[in-house]
Simulated assay, not measured.
Amino acid sequence: MVLLPPVEPMLAQAAEAVPGPGVLRDPAYEQKFDGHRAILFTLAEPGGRVLLQTRRGSLVQDRFPDVVAAAAEQLPAGLVLDGELLVWDPEAGQLSFEGLQRRSAARSRSAATLAARLPAYYVVFDILQQDGTELLSLPYRERRRRLEVLFAARSLTAPWTLCPMTTDVAKAREWLENWTDVSGVEGLVVKAMGQRYVTGARAWTKVRRRDTTEAVIGAVTGTLTRPQLLVLGRHDEAGRLRAVGRTVPLRPEQARQVAEHLAPADPGHPWMGVKFAAAWGSRDILDAILVRPDLVAESSADRAIDRGGVFRHPLRFSRLRLDVTVEDVPGFGAGPTAAAG
């Protein structure tokens, strides 16, 4: 059977720690990049086209003409690859999720201009079809071998990158600790070497690096006596309190701890009239209550942070830091940097 879009990608479920050989039989560890999942097709039909499919099944090849041109020139027909789209921002000198968002939303007329300014890259971690033959039933070990042969035989370079992989759990843990300091690398994906590719199944494991960090509580949802989640902020260079994210819902004991110290906002709160999105990129609005911004929350955060310093995923509240002041909190844009003490 020849694979054609839409193809449901195989997915991963989250875990807190890196599973070793005692938990997963014959594991392999890949670096997890903070991009957009995409399946690439090089069709074998006459005048074969290149298609790029998102995780949800939309076709977006018109928004990435640089990747399409490179695929048409460098890749054989009848190929289906699974990977991650990334974008490089030359001015910032790093990978840019915001640039990727702009590329993904571009109309075809502006796509070429954006491609020149914000070039795209494709990190390949799986091969689903080769020479028109579907490979889903092959074990990951064999699919990975074929990917490595493809990259070597074609001498593939940018915009193509073969996702780094290791079977050494110690090396994987080192990647999680050190490589995630690099912009665009957020953790690991763990697979079994004997595992076949099951479309739509959440059968891989993802482990994101999480860091302890501090921020100011500027608003809550729920009530002052029973807060449900916290809206967090940091001060910018001008001294303005800027929203940087929200927490996951508080556990009952956490809500009681926070409620003991909350105070209603004084007149002139810096967020007066501000609306807060329920999630990063969402149009849904939180029903938030402003509070006096003098409490510091310690939370854990992953590495998904936009260039402006906003956490894209909810933080996990750990405790109040009654031993530090808001002046001790990292500034807006500092990322997941812990405060002193």
Results as ranks from 00 to 15, higher is better:
M1V: 13
M1H: 13
L3N: 08
P5Q: 09
P6I: 12
A12W: 13
Q13E: 15
A17L: 14
A17C: 00
V18M: 07
G20H: 11
G22A: 12
L24W: 14
L24E: 12
R25L: 15
P27S: 11
Y29F: 14
Q31D: 01
D34L: 11
D34G: 06
H36N: 13
R37Q: 10
I39Q: 15
G47V: 09
G48W: 02
Q53Y: 05
R55I: 05
G57F: 11
L59A: 01
V60I: 15
V60E: 07
D66M: 07
V67R: 05
V67S: 07
A72H: 14
Q74K: 12
L75S: 04
E84C: 11
L85I: 14
L86A: 07
L86S: 03
W88A: 07
A92D: 02
L95M: 13
L100I: 05
S104Q: 13
A105R: 15
A111R: 01
A112H: 10
T113R: 14
L114P: 09
A115V: 11
P119D: 08
V124M: 06
D126M: 10
L128Q: 12
Q129E: 14
T133W: 08
L136I: 10
E142A: 14
R143T: 08
R146E: 09
R146G: 05
V149Q: 14
F151K: 01
A153F: 01
A153R: 14
L156T: 05
T157L: 08
L162C: 02
C163N: 12
C163K: 04
T166Y: 00
V169Y: 08
W175L: 02
W175E: 04
L176N: 03
S183T: 15
V189M: 13
K191A: 07
M193R: 15
M193S: 12
G194A: 12
Q195M: 09
Y197K: 04
V198E: 15
A201W: 01
T205H: 10
K206N: 14
D211E: 13
T212F: 00
E214A: 08
E214L: 00
I217R: 07
A219R: 06
V220E: 09
G222F: 13
G222Y: 10
T223C: 08
L230K: 06
L232R: 09
L232H: 02
L241N: 09
R242A: 01
A243G: 01
P252S: 12
A255S: 15
R256C: 02
P264D: 12
A265M: 02
D266T: 09
D266M: 09
P267H: 01
P267M: 04
G273N: 08
V274C: 03
F276D: 02
A278F: 06
A278H: 05
G281E: 12
I285D: 11
L290Q: 11
L295N: 11
A301C: 03
R307M: 04
P314R: 09
L315S: 05
R316P: 02
V324N: 08
V324Q: 06
T325W: 04
V329I: 06
V329R: 01
P330C: 01
G331Q: 13
G331F: 03
F332N: 03
A334N: 03
G335E: 03
A338S: 11
A338L: 00
